[in-house]
């Protein structure tokens, strides 16, 4: 009986370990995939069809879209503000 319980426990541990490794691999892949996206995410004029605030976009500093201008100015402003505080 005890042997059976141990066997089940071992099987469960093995499954857990395998799924954990898979999940960890998944995170690495996801992080890599999204991280790579950063480098080629430069938007040329009028190419952006994103429906979200520009401040949440990693391409903001390089973006040529007119609608990104206020956020870029704000970012410059934030930078200046931090410097001023220092």
């Amino acid at each position: 009986m005890n042997f059976k319980i141990e066997e089940i426990e071992n099987r469960r541990e093995f499954l857990k370990k395998s799924t954990r490794t898979l999940a960890l691999g998944g995170f690495v892949l996801l992080g890599g995939f999204l991280g790579m996206r950063r480098s080629d995410g430069e938007n040329s004029a009028s190419s952006c069809a994103l429906n979200l605030p520009c401040r949440d976009c990693a391409s903001l500093s390089r973006c040529q879209e007119p609608r990104a201008l206020p956020s870029k100015q704000n970012e410059d402003f934030a930078q200046g503000f931090e410097n001023e505080k220092r």
Binding site: G35, R38, A58
Partner: peptide, 16 residues
Amino acid sequence: GYAIFNSGYAVPLTVI
């Protein structure tokens, strides 16, 4: 999620 469904969106590294 937005980055996964929109190839044009680049997520900030800090958010990732």
